[in-house]
Design a protein around this nucleic acid. Structure first.
Lengths: 339, 339
DNA sequence: CTGTTAGCGCGTTCAG
DNA sequence: CTGAACGCGCTAACAG
């Protein structure tokens, strides 16, 4: 191992000078700077991040908690965050939701793992932990921001997503296309943001005096297999008394489409299907999936920027408000004659 | 910040004793151990990972290089690795392929990022870097293993996947179902493992005296949009002179199916489609996608175990050989009457 | 502008 | 079995 001491010796300067020259903190004359740089190059010196961390009390490390790498939801977000961090020469440590106990307990374990790693800041993408958990963590971590929820007492560090608006938009748009009889597929055991969008959807229906939607409730998480299984109910039903099915996520929508089509149900001929999230893949199903675009990536990236600003004193611009948007593709048909 | 010094003081023991009690290295009498533990608890003490790293020369950090979080390929692998590491109380730092320059250059940048972080070990999932690059890195990193390629001079640390076998299996299986006229869709600019499977597929065709397959070549990476675009060639062709299309990945297969179906082509009635990888989603397209299962996750996990054994002196079992397997679903039809 | 000194918090010698 | 001293590699504060 070659240390900064070696560099100083070779360059014929003091240790402090070498340190200043290399770290860039403090002033050094152009001449000595050149000497040090020369020595660094010949020794192929690279300063120890660990020693630097110990002394400077900062690791350049941000922790990210999220449920899972799998599925279509978190990957794009992680990719964007990774890029954001690399640009600042920072890195991240991840923790996902596994282990033993309830989902909340596992989330808490994940957070603890991050805390033990002594991250400079933590970004939380989670709906399982309770507000109280988060507030408790807040005390143990220098900085923390939360995506996709609004934590009381942490509003400046919260980056919620407006699922209420998105859910209402979904219903309203479908109604404007002439649909009146609906079904929804979701889970009451996935997460609260799912409940919000579904409630919003239903209340918008009610506001328009539509009959109550048929509900297909998935028992557990919104995974492909679970959604597939629940879709059997549609596939096997004698007759379908709705023209549009609103699914809590694109994953659910894809599984439902696949299952219904396997049973010979025509989409969108017999049933229009609307997804939610706008996963990349949704454009490449057959028929291509109409969906509600949720600005998850933008929200997460800006939360990340806020975190970096707080934690490392940066001045990155942060935007807090993004709108959902309807994405029309082929899985939804219009029941009104085009004008 | 509460240090081990505080613990020692509170417990009324020497600093060294406290250290031994807490780290578990060295012997301490049961009595003093209890005293120290008590102090740790009341102070809610947690030793500084950084200081520990500086002194012990090990961070408990493994670096993972892979092209991207996105797509269907790496997420399950990462999830499995994350689990593996958490079980050993280790964590990971990731680097993906972005930045400027060629893909190889960006990969090198990613690897450098990992090296600068002074990981104890690095796991490489990459086909862009050259063997020489990897060998150069090897000298700068304590330990390194490579997945999905066989690097000369690093065979013990290489965990290749047998794409040749998988490609031949794919062809042979399709032939046994009565197919004789084929098409393949792939890219010559994606990565070498893609070339291998396609070559193997074609050579197996030749071995069976099948006519040369029609080739649809994607210009660039094997992404949904690129595959979709290339599939236009099939969608717009007057007549289709093949009964089965072999796609280099499931992503390609999904996009191709979607595009062809949009053009009114019946799958598998007119064209059978075979994917490659066995992504989770492949079971939830319509029709569900037949594919070649590639044991990527198992291979990566075992490479990871090898790395942990080497780096941290563990004794995890590591298996080196996994077989690909055909997964039959609904996108391929048999042309032979069932016996 | 530069060199020297003193920590950062922990592990690991050594005597005792 | 225990306690005091030293060192990991670097940054920061202080004189010069």
């Amino acid at each position: 191992m070659t240390t900064i001491r070696d560099v100083a010796k070779l360059a014929g300067v003091g240790l402090g000078t070498a340190s200043r020259a290399i770290s860039g903190n403090g002033v050094v004359s152009t001449k000595t700077l050149a000497k040090v740089e020369q020595a660094v190059r010949t020794l192929n010196f690279s300063p120890s991040k660990v020693a630097r961390s110990l002394s400077s009390k900062t690791q350049g490390l941000v922790g990210i908690y999220f449920p899972s790498f799998e599925g279509t939801y978190f990957a794009p977000i992680l990719q964007a965050i990774e890029k954001e961090l690399r640009e600042q020469d920072l890195h991240m440590v991840t923790a996902t939701n596994f282990g033993s106990g309830t989902r909340r307990e596992r989330a808490v374990q994940g957070m603890r793992f991050l805390i033990e790693r002594q991250c400079d800041g933590v970004l939380v993408l989670d709906t399982y932990t309770h507000d109280a958990d988060l507030k408790a963590f807040k005390k143990q971590i220098p900085h923390m921001v939360v995506v996709n929820r609004l934590v009381p007492g942490m509003v400046a560090d919260s980056f919620p997503i407006d699922h209420d608006l998105a859910g209402r938009m979904a219903a309203q748009s479908l109604i404007e296309l002439g649909h009146r009889r609906f079904a929804v597929m979701h889970s009451e055991r996935h997460s609260s943001d799912v409940d919000v969008r579904i409630q919003a959807f239903k209340s918008q229906l009610q506001k328009n005096k539509c009959p109550k939607p048929t509900e297909f409730i998935i028992d557990g998480l919104l995974t492909f297999p679970n959604a597939w299984k629940t879709s059997e109910q549609i596939a096997q039903s004698k007759q379908i008394n709705f023209t549009a099915l609103f699914c809590a996520t694109d994953v659910v929508a894809m599984a439902a489409m696949s299952r219904m089509q396997t049973a010979g149900i025509d989409i969108p001929g017999q049933v229009s299907v609307l997804g939610y999230d706008n996963a990349e893949m949704a454009a490449y199903t057959y028929p291509s999936l109409s969906t509600v675009h949720i600005p998850s990536k933008e929200t997460a990236v800006n939360a990340c920027r806020r975190l970096l600003n707080q934690t490392f004193g940066l001045q990155l611009p942060v935007i807090r408000s993004f709108q959902p948007a309807m994405i029309w593709r082929d899985s939804v048909r219009s029941l009104v004659s085009s004008k």
